[in-house]
Amino acid sequence: MDSNTTPETEAPMPLWEIFSQAKTGKPHEHVGSLHAPDATMALQNARDAYARRGSASLWVVPAEAIIASTPEDSPMFFDSAADKVYRHPQFYTIPRSVRL
């Protein structure tokens, strides 16, 4: 094995989550992630990786800055939505002849 094949441990680069807005007026949507040493390079790389066919706007966010709900807590966390059927239009009765 020559030196090129030796497994190496290069300094890891932080992970960034990328959000792209396809057109103005549309929401920014998560499109993927990438590694880059800082925010400026993350943004430039995000353009090359995720906006080769255009984008109206890009956000790059350090992955570790995202605070997310967890699958194990989800049932309890979202529980209060489950029994509030009156938040849906189907809950309400109107005369059949009326179109709202």
Partner: peptide
């Protein structure tokens, strides 16, 4: 054409599929 009768779809509590339940 008549509007379909409104139905109340009572939402079931979200089952715990996380696998982390005891």
């Amino acid at each position: 054409m008549t509007t379909p009768a409104p139905t109340i779809a009572a939402k079931q509590p979200t089952p715990d599929f996380s696998g982390n339940s005891p």
